[in-house]
């Protein structure tokens, strides 16, 4: 689904990482970890085409990222759900409208019951009409997760999804992601929270990748 071949990225001050080759297959579960500034968010941005690699090749859903048209990139993003750390909502729309956006903005049919069921699943059944600025940190993360998965994506990318949450809420959110993975969605989570990784590995077979020394490595058994 997502394939990196000898990928490097450089913002202009030398490569952030290089020689990265990895495959995210259907139904896989990956964690991406590493110190702050190592390039976790950059790696995720390459995964959904917000950035282009400085060198190497990124293939998203069997299409080379570098040769995609803007419409092809948009079409590819329909199949990739993204949860940002800051959630990125349209603050003047209700939670329900924000969650339905991936379908309505791409002309796909949306049933009110689908949004309602999904909001109930993430525990926001009573917050459908609320505006995003009125949500708590945990509610925002769960609403962002609902928006990321309403289009039944093949891949879910999450950038520090539990960064602002307490441990109990982090566990709840992680269980939602695990449940989603069990339904066949490939999941990639960027996080520096090792406790969260240990918690998830107890529930699901997950691979842990670590960006360190400008290289991507598979983490050892200490995790």
């Amino acid at each position: 689904m997502i394939v990196f071949e000898d990928v490097a990225h450089d913002y202009g001050g030398g490569p952030l990482f290089r020689d990265v080759s990895v495959r995210l297959d259907k139904g896989s579960f990956h964690f991406l970890t590493g110190p702050s500034g190592a390039g976790k968010s950059t790696f995720l941005k390459l995964c959904y085409g917000e950035l282009l690699p400085s060198s190497g090749k990124v293939t998203l859903m069997n299409r080379a990222l570098q040769s995609m048209t803007r419409d092809q990139l948009a079409e590819t993003r329909e199949r990739i759900g993204v949860v940002h750390q800051d959630c990125q909502f349209l603050d003047h729309l209700t939670v329900e409208q924000n969650v339905g956006l991936p379908l309505t903005a791409t002309g796909r049919p949306l049933r009110a019951s689908d949004v309602s069921d999904l909001l109930t699943w993430v525990g926001l059944g009573t917050r459908a009409e609320a505006l995003p600025p009125t949500l708590s940190g945990g509610e925002r993360q769960r609403a962002a997760l609902a928006r990321a998965i309403i289009g039944a994506p093949n891949v879910l990318l999450a950038d520090e999804p539990t960064g602002n949450l307490d441990w109990e809420m982090s566990q709840r959110l992680m269980m939602l992601l695990i449940e989603l993975n069990r339904m066949g969605t490939a999941v990639l989570i960027a996080t520096h929270d090792l406790n969260l990784i240990r918690f998830a590995k107890a529930q699901v077979q997950a691979r842990v990748m670590r960006i360190s020394g400008r290289r991507l490595q598979l983490a050892g058994s200490e995790l």
Partner: peptide
């Protein structure tokens, strides 16, 4: 810019 970024993120085409 934020509206445009979010719309592109969820797969909206330029035309939309």
């Amino acid at each position: 810019g934020q509206v445009i970024r979010v719309l592109r993120l969820v797969g909206a085409r330029d035309r939309f």
